[in-house]
């Protein structure tokens, strides 16, 4: 189920990495409706990481607006952007996603440390983390295990649980399946979709693997979204 109100809206965004004159990108319009699952396809170097950094507010555009859940994050201070990210966005990376020395439980609960509203949505964060692990097919005893001792597939599920805990409105996944084999990829995506729906979260996944396309509500090509400029500006 998708609704029409946008969870992410980017307008006339222009960005250039500080100190670099040779690379910048422009995003005329990019919108994702709440509850949508969107696959953003793009090759390496197409500006995917920069786009995600703009959405997450770790970098700010030179001009234009980036709105997440109705808030233009460019208007927030650096500290406010960090808190906003913690509250509104659940992140899953390609790999090396977890703090290997910390327990699975601590990894899952980590974003709540910086997101009091997300934490307050949960009656018992520990129980919520255990339930998510269960829903994502992780054995109960893994909750206490050190994250570094899990298989890559299990680690990605823990990363998914960490992104989903406290039901942030937007889940951003940066090539989360690239380190997984085909069978594990399918299972992981099925679980991720199911949980994103269960938590009413919107899912934006970035990948270079077009085979995943038919599992998403919508597919966008990076080249359609972003104009990367490599010539000297």
């Amino acid at each position: 189920m998708t609704t029409e109100s946008p969870i992410l809206e980017m307008h006339d965004v222009r960005y250039r990495w500080p100190g670099r004159t040779s690379f910048g990108l422009e995003i005329p319009v990019f919108r994702i409706a709440a509850g949508e699952t969107v696959l953003l396809l793009g090759e390496s170097g197409s500006g995917k990481s920069t786009l995600l950094s703009l959405i997450c507010g770790t970098v700010t555009p030179a001009s234009g607006s980036v709105s997440v859940a109705g808030t233009d994050i460019a208007t927030l201070s650096a500290g406010q952007r960090d808190s906003f990210r913690a509250e509104q966005i659940g992140l899953i990376f390609q790999q090396f996603n977890l703090l290997p020395y910390a327990s699975v439980l601590d990894n899952i609960l980590l974003p709540l440390r910086f997101a009091p509203m997300r934490r307050n949505r949960l009656a018992s964060p520990h129980q919520a983390a255990a339930d998510l692990c269960d829903d994502l097919g992780l054995p109960a005893h893994t909750v206490r295990a050190r994250a570094g001792t899990l298989s890559v597939g299990q680690q990605q599920r823990v990363a998914a649980a960490r992104a989903l805990i406290g039901a942030p409105p937007l889940i951003v996944a940066d090539e989360p399946t690239s380190a997984l084999d085909a069978a594990t990829q399918t299972t992981f995506l099925e679980l991720l979709f199911a949980q994103a729906r269960a938590h009413n979260s919107t899912l934006l996944m970035v990948s270079h693997d077009a085979r995943l396309a038919d599992q998403f509500d919508r597919v966008a090509e990076m080249s359609d979204v972003v104009t990367a400029r490599r010539a000297a500006a």
Binding site: R85, L91, F93, F96, L99
Partner: peptide, 16 residues
């Protein structure tokens, strides 16, 4: 750096 990036992604401020 990866560890610090994870903290940042989870909402930790640089001062954290």
């Amino acid at each position: 750096r990866r560890e610090m990036a994870i903290f940042r992604a989870m909402g930790a401020r640089p001062r954290t």
